[in-house]
Structure formats: C-alpha cells, structure tokens
Write a protein that binds this DNA or RNA. Structure first.
Ligand SMILES: [Mn+2]
Ligand SMILES: [Mn+2]
Ligand SMILES: [Zn+2]
Ligand SMILES: [Zn+2]
Lengths: 142, 142
DNA sequence: TTACCAGATTAGAATTATTCTAATCTAAAT
DNA sequence: ATTTAGATTAGAATAATTCTAATCTGGTAA
C-alpha cells in the first residue's frame, strides 16, 4: 500500500481517496473487472463516488500503461490489472475470462502483404471455450 | 445473385427484398462493415428499412454461420462476410481492419492448466498496427 | 500554516450501440 | 386465393460510456 502510494506519486498522479480505493481494488487483482465491478466495490467505502471518476481513473491508468483494456466481450469493456502482455480465454457460456501467459510471439509472423500496409505494434489472442461449470450446465440440459 | 437466392432458400431463409439487399451488400464484400454501414447502404434502395431488420438479419446469418461477428473494435460490432476462420489487424489510428489468412493453429497450443478448465472451441488473433496513411499523418504532426 | 490552483470529483444529462415491443405486413406453402 | 409463420417497422427501452459544468481538494510554495 505504501509502495502503491509512492509509485503513483512519483508519476505525478494526484492521489485522492477514491483513486486509492480503485488502486487498492486493482492491486494484485487477477480478475478482469468491468467499470461497473470497480464502481460497485468502491461505492461500499465511498458511496458518492461516480462512474465518471471510475472511467476517468481507468483511462488515466491505461494511458500510464498500468492497466490494459481488453476487447474480448462485445457487451462491455474489461480491464486487466496486469499490464504484462498475455492472452485470454473467454467462456462462451458465462463470459468467465482466464489468463494465458504462453508466449506465442515467435509464431505470430505477419505475412508480407500485411507488413507492407501496417506497422505492427502488438497482438492479442482471444481464445474461446466452455468452462467446466458451463459444460456441466449443458449436460444437464440434454 | 441467382445462386444467392437458391442458397438461402434451401436453408429455409425467407427471402424478403430487404434481406436480398443485405445479402447482396455482403456477398463478396471483403470489408468489415458495421450494422450502420449496412443500414446506410440498404436505405438507399429501401428508405424505410429499419435498424431492427439489419440487426435481426445479421443475427440470423450469424446463427447460420454465414457471417462472423468480430470483437476487435470496442466501440461497435463489425461483421465479417467471410466466415472462414482468419485473423485481423486493426489500425490504432483509424480503425481500418485488414484480413490475415495465415494459419497459426499449430502454434496456438493451450497450456494444460487452461485445458483442464476450458474446453477450447476456437480462437481469434487481433493484431494491432498503424496503417500507412496513419503513419504519414503522424509524421506530418512531428 | 495558509492560500492557491491544476486537476479531480460529482450529479446528471447526453450520446451511442443495440435490443425490445407490439402492430402490421408478406413470402411462400397449400 | 387463403393462410400463417416469420419478417418488417417505428419507436421506445436499455445499457455502456462520455460529456458538462459546477464544486472540491491534494499538493505545492510562500
Ligand atoms: Mn488478463
Ligand atoms: Mn475478415
Ligand atoms: Zn462458463
Ligand atoms: Zn489508419
């Protein structure tokens, strides 16, 4: 927590109580929360916190490279408290998201015709699957 | 066009003029239109067409495996008239989308701890890059 | 310690994509 | 020609996100 404060103060990040609550929520969090998840959690301590604050803070943290926005659920944005490059698998039944830390970069060579048109800057693999829980539910239904 | 009609009639797909216009728009289209792109195009011929029809038709076509929904632009859904599995690169400047037909499946082995938790059903790689046009714009700005 | 102000917070409105509703219409089977 | 399951429509509803403009406050420097 002390480190958290020091880390962000160094970066010229104004540390308000609301922001600290958000940082604390994200710190070490291995999930992939939505803005709403974060809002609901912060609201317990700061009942007047607004969605705008949550979105503003997430935007700022994203700009600073402290979190990632992941484009995997077409319904809403998820945020990844772990900004190290990695991939994800999403359950097509319940949208549960899992981390995949394999490094596939060697294999992900782009064809020439693409490299001529785009300067590559990164990549992200969305794996799709059915989680164990949802597999059970499907069997029950049959 | 005749083939189009035959193909969909076979599948028990009721062929209305609006649907034919949508099918015609999508047939052989190598872009990645949004619902709005399609709506705007169809509206020229059927000015009373509604967004609901576009979304309904896209949903039905998706269910039939004739098109894909691609989750790459957090702002809006894009649809891919080419349902064969392939990957995409998106320009971080202008959101232009390019197709990548490389087959990386051999390399995309999932770690055991994931396979224990999820039954894999597919994957899709989002590459990110800057297109030539946007590279030029950036240089002008500097 | 205090005064200051750039930047943060807030409530609520606005925007935007998408889905829903319920009345009407129509393709195509009979 | 009749029938009807399914398609179309206008418009309302929903939901995620962004914007606005008034107010507040953390951190700096006198
Ligand atoms: Mn992750
Ligand atoms: Mn494509
Ligand atoms: Zn699941
Ligand atoms: Zn571009």
């Amino acid at each position: 927590m002390k480190e958290l404060i020091a880390k962000y103060r160094e970066k010229g990040f104004k540390l308000t109580p609301q922001r600290l609550a958000i940082l604390k929520f994200l710190d070490g969090n291995t999930g992939h929360p939505t803005a709403e998840d974060i809002y609901n959690s912060i609201k317990k301590i700061y009942p007047t916190v607004s969605f705008a604050t949550v979105y503003n803070t997430l935007q700022t943290l994203g700009d600073k490279g402290e979190i990632l926005e992941i484009t995997i659920d077409p319904q809403k944005k998820h945020y990844d408290p772990n900004p190290n490059p990695h991939h994800h698998i999403i359950c097509l039944g319940c949208n549960k998201i899992g981390d995949i830390f394999e490094d596939y970069s060697e294999a992900l060579r782009l064809p020439n015709r693409i490299v001529e048109e785009f300067k590559p800057v990164g990549n992200h693999i969305n794996f799709y699957g059915i989680c164990r829980e949802c597999q059970k539910k499907q069997k029950r239904r049959n």
